[in-house]
Nucleic acid binder design. Sequence first.
DNA 1: CTGAAAGCGCTAACAA
DNA 2: TTGTTAGCGCTTTCAG
Lengths: 346, 346
Amino acid sequence: MSDMSSGRPGQRVRLEDVAKLAGVSMKTVSNVVHDYPHVSVKMRERVQAAIDQLGYRPNLTARRLATGRTGMLALAIPEIDQPYFAELARRIGEEAVRRGYRVIVEQTLNDADAERAVIRDREEGLVDGVIFQPAYMDTMEIARLRPGTPLVLLGEAGRPLTADHVMIDNVAAAREAVELLLGQGRTRIAFFGMVHGDPTESTHLRLLGYQEALLAAGVRTGPELVIETDGFAIDDGVAALSAALDAGVRFDALVCRDDLFAMAALKVLDRAGLRVPGDVSVLGWDDTALARYSTPALSSISPGKEAIARMALELLEDRMAGYDGVGRHRIAPHVIIERETTGHPT
Amino acid sequence: MSDMSSGRPGQRVRLEDVAKLAGVSMKTVSNVVHDYPHVSVKMRERVQAAIDQLGYRPNLTARRLATGRTGMLALAIPEIDQPYFAELARRIGEEAVRRGYRVIVEQTLNDADAERAVIRDREEGLVDGVIFQPAYMDTMEIARLRPGTPLVLLGEAGRPLTADHVMIDNVAAAREAVELLLGQGRTRIAFFGMVHGDPTESTHLRLLGYQEALLAAGVRTGPELVIETDGFAIDDGVAALSAALDAGVRFDALVCRDDLFAMAALKVLDRAGLRVPGDVSVLGWDDTALARYSTPALSSISPGKEAIARMALELLEDRMAGYDGVGRHRIAPHVIIERETTGHPT
DNA sequence: CTGAAAGCGCTAACAA
DNA sequence: TTGTTAGCGCTTTCAG
């Protein structure tokens, strides 16, 4: 319709170019760009026409410099390809977009230094806030390095409570899991997946809930029913559980630290000729795709990922809005999803 | 050691503050920040001391405005929690970090408009380049909306070749898959997972390779051996395959469109009392966590995700460096990973 | 080898 | 309701 190459050819079109074309000031253009209410209709039309003609789009970077707001959030997690984190990232991404943010994903890749970098404001000036699930750093250390950027932590919270946290009640969830299994007639319930040197608090909490429930029910247990592994990989799980079986450890139910170990359990039990759930009930944790797609479909403890995402964003927006009080905790709901790997013995 | 609150209290410390403290110009500070070679040692030390004392860190946004480079890349994919994309995102993230970029993940969530937004420079000025795996848009449409931001496409490339592409050779991979199965004594090989209304080209290419190999081997086949589904979900797969079995379709091997359908196959075959791989070989596609963790472990066609990531970044860096030629294609390698679901009939 | 100053493109306070 | 203008913090010629 008109000359697209007028003005500074080869350059991006700027607010000023639009203003010039429309014969108005930059402020007026800015007003219509921002849908500022008090702009006369014909002014708005004229400016919009210029914008369309030139194909103007604001330079986000410049806007940021001027406003001091980046509109971006960082999500720092160990590995994006671990199903749980991938699913969480999706929810957080959705929730963030809903609130007008974009998210940059930071993989710490099991590197303690990478985690520290996140906390030491590596993101400073890049993002408005950070959602961080640490694997190595504890609350103490995070408190010490306490960054200037608003921060919300995911996962377990030790003391002191200097930062906001969102988590599920691991103890209660484990307790309920054991109660469910007990209610279905299981009597020798093992906990599978204490990883040697596990830096996370979660596993301990889960084990605690498991033990509490057993104790409360007056069911006898023993240390051999807590099955330890050398690492987080599936092969570690397979090796550990096979060894336990070979050593004569017997159980009719398995509460697994996560879905991955549950998958390992399915493998080992299959090889051992044990039926699931006929001989052994298997319960996973995290309710990931692994659980939904396996055969038999895995029952799993499902942390409310949407709720976690929503709560994290709420807390973060508070902080970004200036809230500067003490660290708050939010407990997201959880639910046990029963699929095919749990049930009464047959 | 010294007064941290000097100057503009409560404000972030700026380059100028450092310059003032060190008694030098901003340029000099900038020089040492950037490790510019020609700075005298004592000057460097003096400035560094000031930087440390003030805890100065450059404002990335300001830097961006000045340089025009953001140091960020966008990765636009349908869903981050689909195992294949999660694993790809991890590789791309790693490769990007290696090259000095951060990546912002854009989920298009199966929304054609969201895809269009990506292409219409929604990211303009936000990122230096975009890596995009479309699910709905075809090459034509992308060419039409051709953005100003450097772009590399992942997945199939139709004509015209206006943009850079990285893909694997789906036809060849499917052919090899069939040849492998044939070599193991399978004779009735089905293709499982033609999704009605599938917008992607990949499935067609895979089917094509499947048919080519069968034809070349002179093995008779039939339309009933191409099993169609109503959607991409596992339930769609389960329903379709069950129906095929009920309808009397028989096969001794299944080449699946992706690992997810392979998981569906494992479920259905298990229920039907068919042994894998004794009665039926099952081959997945994408080599995701699903394949590695299932029981039996799923054999799968593995696209070289690291190679895809590397090639995509290479092409993108070229574009960002100013290359403006015709669209280029790169074929990433693939390999068939044999686990437990393929083998000779027994 | 270092300093001064002019932008980068947009926002927002202040005027008109 | 619209225009003017001074920053936001850093980079980068161009002098010195």
